[in-house]
Design a protein around this nucleic acid. Structure first.
Lengths: 116, 116
DNA sequence: TGTGTGATCAACCTAAGAGTTGAACAACTG
DNA sequence: CAGTTGTTCAACTCTTAGGTTGATCACACA
């Protein structure tokens, strides 16, 4: 797998379990046990998911006695948002170009159109 | 891998090559050869990347003689944007709660703070 | 000090991702 | 028809992701 930050973030988000963990964490900190409770998988599996989220910077963990409270971090999501944003501009550009093309077609500059 | 739409989209985006392909396609349609040209990998590898993008609905392909022109599709990116958006609201909520907490601390309602 | 609890580490399995090469298919072109 | 070009299919390798179980570590508490 690619190890650049954006790829790590996207990869971390490409799993429903991990997205559910983030959803839970967005409502406040939680321990590994609390996070694992809703899932039909072992605690160790959830721990691994947390590691993936941690590697992507989406989660940080504190230390309180034998607990490791997990907290969501928003910075990587901001990066995703930025990335999306750049595309959104380009979509608009693209739509603009499409509009122009449609105008050309409507003006009869273009020949017949396929129906695909 | 998970096969729900959002997971497919995130997984497709979790690769720099595929994001570069999308960047190229956002500037207009392109053939497989054109898309493969900048990369130091075989044409077949790029073809596989395109399949991944296609499965996620990020790319559709036409047919023109022996060419298969690729076109970017924005719908899945909109889904990502929606997903992010839901989180963004929650961040704001969270920041609001943090602000409240900071106020409480500044008012001396809270005891000493750790420096973590 | 021993014991229960929270969490991770280690080893293992299976499936899938990402790349390769070689062959095959599809459509234009001479 | 033969050859060339664009693209995909098939088989193979290598690595990693995601899950399991069992052992271990870290801390609290009686």
């Amino acid at each position: 797998m690619a190890t650049d930050p954006l790829s790590l973030t996207f990869a971390a988000l490409a799993d429903p379990t991990r997205r559910a963990i983030l959803a839970r964490l967005s409502r406040g900190e939680a321990t590994v046990n609390e996070l694992a409770e809703p899932f039909a998988m072992s605690l160790q599996a959830v721990s691994k998911h947390l590691k993936v989220l941690e590697r992507a910077g989406l989660v940080t963990r504190g230390r309180a006695a034998q607990w490791r409270p997990c907290r969501i971090e928003t910075a990587p999501l901001d990066e995703v948002s930025d990335w999306l944003g750049r595309y959104h501009e380009q979509w608009e550009d693209r739509f603009t170009r499409l509009d122009e093309e449609l105008l050309r077609i409507q003006n009869g500059t273009e020949g017949e159109q396929s129906h695909e």
